[in-house]
């Protein structure tokens, strides 16, 4: 019984993290049809910005709990700066090109940003782990968990709910949905698609940076943390169905739970988890869990 509780808790914690790193990717893909490899770099930027701001914050001796707001702020700043810069400065020249070309562009961008990070922050690690232990611990199923893990869950949940509300309840959000379903018709109906693109990309970048910023307190922030994140995020997005927020959430949850079960029961298979889940899901639902009906064009 205890093991089941632990698996569920571990699964949800990992799922929250997965959702944070993949929700931005699914949003960007849904709207812009761009598979953004540089998503990993935005995550890295978020982690570095979060870590260096938190270090500076604690250096001044401010109210420790405020560091969570600092992390949030770091993500917003990174998103607001890098999002429009990348979309306006680079990606918009690529619209109308083949999807794979846009992939190549984001890959080139990823390579560039890897070194930009090194030039700006150096290669020495950044440690911002103070916020991790700050909230204390809780005992669940006989095991100690840091409250921070549940903060991560709350952040992921909040980000998901806010995004969902934005997409379904606001006027601009509905325009986004219109563009997701059919960019051509939307343009014809007078939707300013390029504005939708900037906003969507910026939001996606913010989410990636949010994932990075809230991961920073758990890790040593070093160059090269992007690569692992990219394939995980891609897998979750494909499992959920491209462009589907609910899908990303469910996909993250499934992967999280399966992985936690593997770790506790059959650790040898941990490496395979995400790929096996992806293969099985695609076998059953070839376009992911929440795939939209696609019109076949003749």
């Amino acid at each position: 019984m205890n093991t089941l509780i632990i698996i569920a808790v571990d699964g949800v914690i990992f799922a929250s993290w997965l959702f944070l790193i993949s929700s931005g990717l699914t949003l960007i893909y849904g709207v812009m049809r761009i598979l953004n490899i540089a998503h990993g770099s935005l995550y890295t930027l978020g982690a570095y910005a979060g870590a260096s701001l938190v270090i500076a914050y604690f250096g001044r001796g401010f109210w420790p709990q405020g560091s969570y707001l600092v992390l949030l702020g770091a993500a917003l700043v990174v998103g607001l700066i890098s999002g429009p810069l990348i979309e306006r400065g680079l990606l918009r020249w690529m619209y109308g090109r083949d999807q794979v070309f846009q992939l190549l562009v984001t890959y080139a961008l990823f390579l560039i940003l890897e070194d930009v990070v090194k030039l700006v922050w150096g290669v020495n690690p950044y440690y911002a782990y103070k916020p991790y232990g700050l909230l204390g611990q809780v005992r669940l199923g006989g095991i100690i968990y840091p409250w921070y893990s549940f903060l991560l869950f709350a952040v992921a949940l909040l980000a998901g709910v806010l995004l969902w509300l934005f997409v379904t309840r606001t006027r601009f959000g509905r325009l986004v949905v219109a563009v997701i379903y059919d960019p051509e018709i939307s343009t014809a109906m007078g939707v300013n698609v390029s504005r939708v693109f900037v906003v969507a990309f910026t939001l996606g970048a913010m989410l990636a940076a949010l994932g990075g910023a809230f991961t920073a307190p758990m890790i040593a922030v070093v160059p090269g943390i992007a690569v692992e994140v990219i394939v995980l995020a891609f897998a979750v997005v494909v499992i959920g169905g491209l462009g589907s927020l609910e899908g990303a959430a469910l996909g993250a949850l499934i992967v999280g739970l399966v992985r936690a079960a593997m770790v506790h029961v059959f650790p040898v298979l941990e490496l395979f988890t995400i790929y096996l889940v992806m293969a099985v899901v695609l076998l059953v639902r070839p376009h992911g869990l929440f795939a939209r009906e696609e019109v076949r064009r003749i």
Binding site: I6, I143, I225, V227, E228, A260, P267
Partner: peptide, 18 residues
């Protein structure tokens, strides 16, 4: 055996604690 550069070790740590 978590993946190299996995970064997040919640589940593994729980298994070790248990």
């Amino acid at each position: 055996f978590p993946r190299l550069f996995a970064g997040e070790y919640s589940a593994e740590l729980s298994a070790l604690l248990a």
